Amino acid sequence: MAAGGDHGSPDSYRSPLASRYASPEMCFVFSDRYKFRTWRQLWLWLAEAEQTLGLPITDEQIQEMKSNLENIDFKMAAEEEKRLRHDVMAHVHTFGHCCPKAAGIIHLGATSCYVGDNTDLIILRNALDLLLPKLARVISRLADFAKERASLPTLGFTHFQPAQLTTVGKRCCLWIQDLCMDLQNLKRVRDDLRFRGVKGTTGTQASFLQLFEGDDHKVEQLDKMVTEKAGFKRAFIITGQTYTRKVDIEVLSVLASLGASVHKICTDIRLLANLKEMEEPFEKQQIGSSAMPYKRNPMRSERCCSLARHLMTLVMDPLQTASVQWFERTLDDSANRRICLAEAFLTADTILNTLQNISEGLVVYPKVIERRIRQELPFMATENIIMAMVKAGGSRQDCHEKIRVLSQQAASVVKQEGGDNDLIERIQVDAYFSPIHSQLDHLLDPSSFTGRASQQVQRFLEEEVYPLLKPYESVMKVKAELCL
């Protein structure tokens, strides 16, 4: 049975990233139509530049190519590739079939990587351009969430054990800070992308030097003109047959890092959902379990974690691919890159769409948070109580021993009897502590235990987050809708 299948058929496997999760716009960027249309555009740009620099290419040939950029006979191309065992030459023939007058000058002087690699770089750039505003929107939604809850005390956790208090907004800023680093890295790697350009079979530009009869300047002009037509500021000066596969490492490393950030955020949300302090959106008709109707599973956060793990592992592909590119190139890269580049971007696209949807509907339960604080705060307040007693004339050592005994009794009630923490009640009825009984409410005010959390939130948002989001103001209103 021949390899390949009808990918629109229910009898043929289709990647869930495309069929179930990723956005239509990201799927289109990695589609065959987008790819092969870009090949034709690159052939047109090459012909236009070659004509401008004096090669015998007519206006009629150029116009014929322009008129057929979208006229792609995919069936013919597939048949040609089956016959020739070469995808680029299959599309040269297919393009030439609908451009008979231009057929002889299509791909003039070029090698397969002229269309293959340059198209990949265009796709990487455009895919990054799709991700950047999506990530900015996630940051914006979380920034709104953090600002609104900047002063809401909550129990902090280290080692997932109760620690000092923080605020809900401050905790959210930990998430935002990681995503801001990801946004900066995505922008950097996007701006650092260079075009492969017009380089020939081993990167020496020998074929173009021959076409222009040894004119170095025209060869350099050709490279520059096509690079500018493709919208790049610069091209690699040095290439082998391909652009260095280190570029793929750079791009997928940034995406993998984004995956790590999203995994951490969504894990926190899942843990908070278990504590009943916070939940992701839950639709009115949504079913959490087929057997347990009360369940409210954090399905979206779980999906993000599941896909983020996949995204983090994909960076190993370009690392290994770059390491086995012998001399000017081997074909070890080809099949692998067809999979890992598309999957990385479709996965990143999915987790950003999902995280935006989550961040637009996060639900906080202040009463649950308050109750958990009441359970733990008495123990945390013991040092403040000791200091207040010393100020009232008591002995630190005597007070410490009193607190120690009462704390152990209260802990026994919590752990052995399943009761509430009654340390404060014990202190309130103990005559030894009568000098500070009137101060206990103040000493137990949760806001006095959150330090500068709310001020940190305000400063972080104003100095770091809002300036970073400013270039994306025009796209901030787009909502994230999930079908599944």
Rank of each mutant, 00 (worst) to 15 (best):
G4F: 09
H7P: 09
G8I: 01
S9G: 08
S9T: 04
P10M: 11
S19T: 01
A22S: 14
C27D: 01
F28P: 01
R33N: 06
Y34H: 09
F36P: 14
R37F: 13
W45K: 05
A49C: 07
L53G: 08
I62Q: 05
M65G: 01
N68I: 06
H86K: 07
H86P: 08
A90H: 04
H93A: 08
H93I: 13
H93L: 08
T94C: 07
G96R: 11
G96W: 01
H97Y: 00
P100G: 03
A103P: 01
I106F: 05
I106D: 01
D120Q: 00
D129N: 09
I139M: 09
S140D: 11
F145K: 11
A150L: 11
P153S: 04
L155M: 05
T158E: 03
R171T: 01
C172L: 00
C173V: 03
L179T: 09
D182V: 06
L183P: 05
D191P: 10
F195T: 01
K199S: 07
T202S: 03
F208N: 01
E220Q: 09
F236I: 08
Q241F: 00
T244L: 00
D248A: 12
L252E: 08
L258H: 15
L258K: 08
G259M: 04
S261N: 03
T267L: 08
I269M: 04
E279V: 05
E280G: 07
S289N: 09
C304M: 08
L314H: 06
P318T: 12
T321C: 01
T330L: 01
D332E: 08
S334H: 09
S334K: 09
R338L: 02
T350C: 10
L352H: 01
L355W: 14
L355R: 00
L355T: 01
I373V: 12
R374G: 09
Q375T: 05
M380N: 05
I386C: 15
A392H: 12
G394F: 01
H400F: 13
H400M: 01
E401K: 13
E401G: 04
V405W: 15
S407R: 00
G418Q: 15
R426Q: 14
A431P: 15
Y432C: 14
L440M: 10
S447T: 07
G451S: 03
S454W: 02
P467Q: 00
L468H: 01
Y472R: 01
K477M: 13
E481G: 12
